[in-house]
Every structure is written in C-alpha cells, then in structure tokens.
Amino acid sequence: MNYFVIFLGAMLVNNIVLVQFLGICPFLGVSSRISTAIGMGLAVMFVMTIATIAAYLIQVFLLVPLSLEFLQTVAFILVIASLVQLVDIVMKKVSPPLHRALGVFLPLITTNCAILGVALLIMNREYNLAESIVFAIASALGFALALFIFAGLRERLELYDVPKAMQGAPIALVTAGLLALAFMGFAGLA
C-alpha cells in the first residue's frame, strides 16, 4: 500500500514537471512532436531508474560511512554524467536499434535537472532502496506522461492563429500552466 501511495504521489499528485518544476528544459525543448516526446520519455525513464539506484548505493555505502555527505552534489552529478556516457556506450554495442531511437536524447539528459532532483529528493525523504526505485520509476512515468500530453497539445497549437508576441515559448508556457491547473485536480488523491 505504501508503495502504491508513493507511486501515485510521484506520478500524478506531485508530478515532477508540472508541480515540482524539474526538467522544464526538455519539457519545453523536445515537446513539439509526439514521437520525440515518447523517445525522450523512455530515455529519461531508463536513466532515472539506473541513476537513482547508483546514487542510493553511493550515498549509503560511500558518503555516509566516510561522513562525506557534503560532497553529495559533486558525487551525484559526476555519477549521473558518467552513467549517461556508460549507458550510451553499452546501448550502442548491445542494442543498436534502441540506441538509434534514444541516442540523441542521452547527452541532453546529463543536464536534465529531473535526474539529479529525484536523486536529491530521495535522500531528503530517506526512502529505502525499494521505495527509491518505485519513486524513480513513477517520477519518470509522470515526466513521460506530462511530456506526451504537452506534445499532443503543441501539435494542435500549430494549427491556430496565435498573436505574434505570444508565438513559440510564451504560448507554450501558458499551455503548460493550463495543464498544471488540470494536474492540480489530482491533489488529495494520495
């Protein structure tokens, strides 16, 4: 039951993009087509789960025993950056089709603050490993869901006559605001 609450909370109620404001750059940057949105969503899910496990292990077995918690930020970002490189290399070797589909998104993920943000949130909330994994997967699903809906909205938005000053980023931000308003309907669910 506890896992279910964490799952719903991370995916819908505290949606990582629309409520927590993590990963806004890819949310606005790669959301003009549904197909790229799906690719980015899958790549984030993949990296976020692995990165969370790695960050958890580093925190529990390295930083806390050596009382080096103040190096958390430096350690996590280095782990995430090298992990993204590693995933890139392994994926290229093991599964070229998957690499073709997700490869272009991987370098972008290093500076995706959602990955580091989820790792830090888990440490703040003192989840155990299983809870951390559930939280990471649910957060990534929430990211993918928000990105997918937003890309669908933006594809339709292209057909409309938007005032000149509002074209592009401003109307996208207003649309995201309305989407965030819709997601507020989930408040109190978990």
Binding site: M166, I171, A172
Partner: peptide
C-alpha cells in the same frame, strides 16, 4: 501555485 508560475512567465 504551480500553474500561476507558468502563466505569469508566459506573459
């Protein structure tokens, strides 16, 4: 709340 941030920044 979060939606207001998006709206205000958009304008």
């Amino acid at each position: 709340l979060p939606p207001g941030a998006f709206l205000a920044l958009g304008f």
